[in-house]
Design a protein around this nucleic acid. Sequence first.
DNA 1: TCTGGGGTCCTAGGACCC
DNA 2: TCTGGGGTCCTAGGACCC
Length: 421
Amino acid sequence: MFALIDGNHFYCSCERVFRPDLKTRPVVVLSNNDGCVVSRTPEAKALGIKMGVPYYQIAHLEQHAGLVVFSSNYALYSHLSHHMMHSIASLVPRTEVYSIDECFADVSGLNQLPELALQLRERVWQWVGIPCCVGIAPTKTLAKFCNHLAKKHASLRGSVVWPQWRTDIQQRALRSEDVSEIWGVGRKLSTRLHAINIHSAWDLHCADTTTLRRLFGVTLERTQRELQGIACLDWENQPAAKQSIVCSRSFQSQVTSLDDLRAALSHHVQSAVHKLRQERGCCQYLRVFAASNRFRDDLPQYYGHQGSFLAQPCDDTLQLHQLAQQQLQQVFQAGIAYKRCGVELGHIHPKHIQQLDWIANASIKQRPELMQAWDSIKRKYGDKHLYLASEGLGTDAWKMRQQHRSPQYTTAFQDILVIPN
DNA sequence: TCTGGGGTCCTAGGACCC
DNA sequence: TCTGGGGTCCTAGGACCC
């Protein structure tokens, strides 16, 4: 039996933890670079703000409807996420963190599931201040579905326990939801399903399995079985080792000079390789890309990229940085207005298991002690105090726009909340 | 003027093997 | 004129997730 616990409009709720005055106000959180809406409270939803809508289209609501806007503050969200997962783990034998705002919990063999659901919600609320909903069912897909129902219908009081429902109620619930609400059925798939008369979740539940398999493949067959209560997705005991790491950002304004691109890329390489070392991995592939603004039809469009393999797995920032900058040179074309660039590290292997190249003689210079020192300085003093000089080249045009960011209440001493007398 | 940033899995088809 | 059958590995592209 699986429980799925999901924080309600998580990023907004994180902001509200330290701003109780916003409890009933419409709040949204924007994507990086203050681009578009990625989290919204029910009050913001009621204003007609859709998910993913660009900020400039709703900015007027700050003036006219009391909308409160935040830039994303990942330091805050990931820290509160940690606390939330810890609170959940204190009540159940096993958890599997699925994303920053949701987690599966193993409730097999436990009695009084409705009471447990209530307890989970209350504990997260009391310990962390995040409201959440709980869905409990015999498969992960159904648990997600129950969670969805719990969020949608206030009358369910934040939790749905599938086995407690009579069969006809379960059926009615499946009939009431479009197939696109099911986990694993996205936009394309639901369009194709509608075309063959599969509209509701119940239609998918009842569809002919062989046809489904033939037309849509094994993934959707699994989804159907899960809807029928046959578990196809098991617990993931270990978080899988990453196969690739990507770091990229949009620029606050257009960038045309190689120096600005160099600076941005330098920044991204440093974070990507830092993540790589935290994974205890080494990569053997590196790709650099830079792109124009895809929304500007009036400007020349460009997506340039260049990747290459290394003779030897590597986790050395300086080496990878040098290679990335060489590749950028190939990618760069004058006369393009760039809006985004980034780096991808691929073919990642565990650091302690390495296949060396016995033909290529060139061994890549690596400096483990230097990298260790680098990482510990970053850990101790934060990100801003140590970086490669090339990051300081050029202008600030490549940096991120973050005009509405809240303080890092829980992770920076200078941002600790002060409550006046 | 202004539109995010990560990831994974599956499949079809081509190249190759015996 | 007529040309098998069974496999693996790799990659690109398409779909999905948050």
